[in-house]
Amino acid sequence: MLIGKPSDLPSSAITSKDQYLNRRRFLRGAAAAGAAALGASRVADILSPRTAARAGTKLQTVKSPLTTTGEQLTSYDDITHYNNFYEFGVDKGDPVKNAGILPTRPWTVRVEGLVKQPKTFDIETLLKLRPLEDRIYRHRCVEAWSMVIPWVGYSLSEFIGQCEPLSKAKYVQFLSYYDKHVEKWTNESSIFWPYTEGLRMDEAMNPLALLTFGLYGEVLPNQDGAPVRIVVPWKYGFKSAKSIVAVRFLEKQPPTTWSQQNAQEYGFYSNVNPSVDHPRWSQKTERRIGQPFYAQRRMTLMFNGYADQVAGLYKGMDLRANY
């Protein structure tokens, strides 16, 4: 078993000169590495080892009251190997293989539109703007699967405060990184690039909307939207734009990527709502990622379970018309 897949083992356990010279120690080292490999991964991982390394760098974080409790976290492995990030391929396993090429340093975020003064934030400045919080959120994809993810970041509202938007600004638009020489997979779909998403100003100011830099206490891996992304936990996943390079403040509702692609299937609001079906499938239930097939299915909650915090934003609105 050890001989079959050496990539599962730390190379130090195999090639160290000490171990090479000392057979006893070699055996002990190999046994330890084997035990570690077996303990750390499931059978599937040994059969087909996953190659990408962790982003790794630990982030200094503080606790947050705005964290979801009582849910089993989705594994780091699943969160980083099952991604929709069409700039790096349309298959869910593509981003982990291809997103390594995304240059996450240096990185800046432009702030434009209806602001007192356009400015540019460096990623290092953004990281230090506010204390980074650990926030566990449910994540519900429009494709009816879901995860529970321990994100790291701070409320988007804190950042918006620094942007000094004018009172005329009613919407905020996010633009994702786009360079077709880097993201060579953008012609696998008919999407208009760059990827763009948007929120109404009051939605963006809700403390649950998160400017996100990490997950599992570490820097975001590229396939999850490094180095900075938006997370809006009460909306379908595609509303949470990845790898943000610009934030625009606008008076009118901006066009958004999936709505441009198919306005009948994907609206601007796209709040998680079990009573409004996607035209082609039901949104009543969802499949929790990483569970065995017989335990995946669960009920989808209104606003993904965050109704207490966000339902007020939509008072008096017809959520069937504003899907």
């Binding site: 499931r42 059978v43 190997h81 099952y82 499949r287 065995p292 097939f293 995946q296 299915r297």
Partner: peptide
């Protein structure tokens, strides 16, 4: 085999 060992990937229902 995949169902028994839970090795059908992150979304086994979709895989099946």
């Amino acid at each position: 085999y995949g169902a028994v060992t839970n090795s059908l990937g992150p979304d086994p229902t979709a895989a099946i």
